Amino acid sequence: MTELCHEQSRGLVRQQTLTAGTVSGDATTRARDTPFRDLDHAREALIARLTAGLSPAALRAALADWLIHLAAAPGKQLELASLWAAHARSLCAYLGQIGLGQHALPDALGVPAPAVPR
């Protein structure tokens, strides 16, 4: 009986929505054609291109999840800090060689990153 009431109420809501849309159809069409709506549409299209169609909220949630896991793993933090220091040293050495006119690829940049066991 509850489901029937919900169905009936949803039907009434749908009917009211359709009626409201039909009555104010001209106003809705006019609102859709304004430059303000075009600006919103352009912004949404840009965000879709930048995020490859993924929801920005989903990307933020994934980043937050990754940061929470990283914050709870001090060993991984030390590993990443050590890797950053090694790459910074290699970059400084490479920039120093460029300054002296020698263009050599540093060792750390020529070695691929180790595979992560999963």
Rank of each mutant, 00 (worst) to 15 (best):
Y94W: 12
P35M: 04
A104E: 09
L95E: 10
W66H: 12
A27F: 09
R89G: 03
A104F: 04
Q16W: 14
T34E: 07
L54Y: 05
I47G: 00
A42C: 10
L105F: 04
T34R: 05
Q16Y: 15
Q16A: 15
I68H: 10
D40L: 15
L39T: 13
G21M: 06
V23D: 01
L59R: 02
R49Y: 05
R30V: 13
S9Y: 07
R89W: 02
L39E: 10
G53M: 03
C5G: 12
D65T: 08
Q97N: 07
Q15S: 15
L63G: 05
L4G: 09
L12P: 01
T17F: 12
A81L: 11
G99C: 08
Q97V: 00
H69K: 11
F36C: 13
E79A: 15
T51L: 01
T19Y: 13
A48I: 04
K76H: 14
L95G: 04
A81F: 06
D107Y: 00
V13M: 13
P106S: 01
I68S: 11
G11W: 04
R89C: 02
R10T: 08
R37F: 15
A85H: 04
D65Q: 12
D38P: 02
A62D: 02
A88K: 04
L78V: 14
L46W: 04
K76A: 15
D107V: 05
L50R: 09
G96D: 00
H87S: 00
D38W: 11
A88G: 03
A58V: 06
A85W: 05
A93W: 00
P35F: 03
A58L: 07
A93I: 02
P35S: 04
H103M: 09
A48Q: 07
G21A: 07
L12D: 11
A45V: 12
E7N: 09
L78M: 12
D65G: 09
I47W: 00
